[in-house]
Every structure is written in structure tokens, then in C-alpha cells.
């Protein structure tokens, strides 16, 4: 009953692959998504650098990418993936669609976090004669930091879910293991083990995010 067809090496490899995919796509996705989210907030009507043209392009664009289910995005952009990493299979091939998936998601989360900042503080900044960059750096970001950390936590957990589909392009990872061995080969041990690992991973990341946000807020 407890027999399984995979080795612990395979398991470890899968965990590392998941962490790799999540880590790299979170990092690059944040590099793209955070500035994008800031851009959304400052160019929106009434923002510190109001720019109707840019906002009306950016806003629907993010919605369009966000409308695609990840599994479709994954196969739809194979040509793009191939152009960037010169392959359409494997872990690195999965990372490209993961980034494209998560960057707009992060942008939206960042936008929401920044919009929560008390408008009175931005008014005070403007009254002090702060430049738009100073408003972002000295007022907007410090006030939103706790909320931003929680947003990135949510994004990370979303990414873990998405990596389960990376198996479609041979990306590997814990989710792939669950589908290939646990589901398709009826290996209950793999199924249960991967679910437990995912639960631990998600719980751990959420607690880490909460603790960090609380520590940084201190108020």
C-alpha cells in the first residue's frame, strides 16, 4: 500500500525545480511588475504624473494578459519562449511564460497596495514641493511597504500554483510529479506527499510574508 515508483532523489529534484521556477520568475516578474504597478498609479487620472495615453494603453494590456488562463498562455507563447531561451521544453522554458503570467499580476497587486496609501500624505508631499520621483520614493513606497510585502506573498503563492502546469512543457517541479506519477499512474504516495509539500510551502511563505510585513510596519 505504501509502495511508490519514484525515488527520493526524484522528489528532491522536483522540489528544487519548483523553487527555481518560482524564485526566478518571482524575481524577474517583480522587476517588471513593481515598476509597472507604480506606473499605473502615477499615470492614472489624478496621479502625480498623470498621463492619459500611457494609462489607457497599459491598463487594458494588463487586463488582456491577466484574462488568459496560465495553461493557455503557456502553449500560446511557445514561439516567444523559443526566441528568448532557444528551447520550448524544460525548466527554463517554463520560466518565460511564468514571468509573463506573474508580472501583470504583480503590477495589479502593487497598484492596489499603492492606492491604499492615504491621499493626504501625497497632498502633504506635493505641498512640500517634492518632485514626482521624490513622492514615489519618500512617500508612496515607504507608506505601502507592508502592503507590498503581502502582495508579493500572494503573487508567490499564485506562482506555486502555476508551476504545477509547467509540466506541460516539461518544466518539472512538484506539481508535475503529482500529475505524472500521482494522477496518471495512480501512485497515492506521490499524490499525498506532493500535496503535503505544497501545503507546507504555501503555509511557510504566507507566514514569512505576514511576519515580514508586521516587522516592517511596526505601527
Amino acid at each position: 500500500m505504501f509502495s511508490t515508483s519514484i525515488t527520493s532523489e526524484q522528489f528532491l529534484k522536483a522540489i528544487i525545480e519548483t523553487i527555481q521556477m518560482v524564485g526566478v520568475s518571482l524575481f524577474i516578474g517583480s522587476l517588471l511588475g513593481i515598476p509597472l504597478g507604480i506606473l499605473l498609479v502615477i499615470t492614472r487620472p489624478g496621479g502625480v504624473l498623470e498621463n492619459k495615453a500611457l494609462y489607457t494603453v497599459l491598463n487594458p494590456l494588463i487586463n488582456i494578459i491577466r484574462s488568459l488562463p496560465f495553461i493557455i498562455l503557456l502553449v500560446a507563447i511557445i514561439p516567444v519562449t523559443r526566441a528568448i531561451v532557444h528551447t520550448s521544453i524544460g525548466t527554463s522554458a517554463a520560466i518565460v511564460p511564468l514571468i509573463i503570467y506573474i508580472a501583470p499580476y504583480i503590477a495589479r497587486l502593487v497598484e492596489n497596495s499603492l492606492l491604499e496609501v492615504n491621499p493626504g500624505i501625497l497632498e502633504a508631499a506635493e505641498a512640500m514641493g517634492a518632485t514626482p520621483l521624490q513622492v514615489i520614493w519618500y512617500f508612496l513606497l515607504p507608506e505601502a511597504i507592508g502592503s507590498l510585502i503581502l502582495s508579493l506573498t500572494t503573487a508567490t503563492i499564485g506562482l506555486i500554483g502555476a508551476t504545477a502546469m509547467a509540466g506541460t512543457v516539461g518544466g518539472g517541479g512538484v506539481g508535475d510529479l503529482a500529475i505524472v506519477y500521482g494522477y496518471q499512474r495512480f501512485d497515492k504516495v506521490v499524490m499525498v506527499a506532493t500535496v503535503i509539500i505544497l501545503i507546507i510551502l504555501v503555509q511557510g511563505i504566507q507566514s514569512l510574508g505576514n511576519t515580514l510585513a508586521r516587522k516592517i510596519r511596526r505601527y
Binding site: E126, A127, G129, P142, E143, R217, Y219
Partner: peptide
């Protein structure tokens, strides 16, 4: 020039508008 002029005008608010994070 306007930003420079604003440094010469202080302002206080009904709800203080302090940075809670600082």
C-alpha cells in the same frame, strides 16, 4: 520654480498627514 516656491510655504492639515511608517 513652483516646487522651489512651495518650500517657502509650510502647510498643516486637519488630519495631520504624517507618514505612519516613519
Amino acid at each position: 520654480e513652483l516646487r522651489a516656491a512651495k518650500k517657502n510655504i509650510g502647510m498643516i492639515f486637519q488630519h495631520f498627514n504624517l507618514l505612519e511608517s516613519k
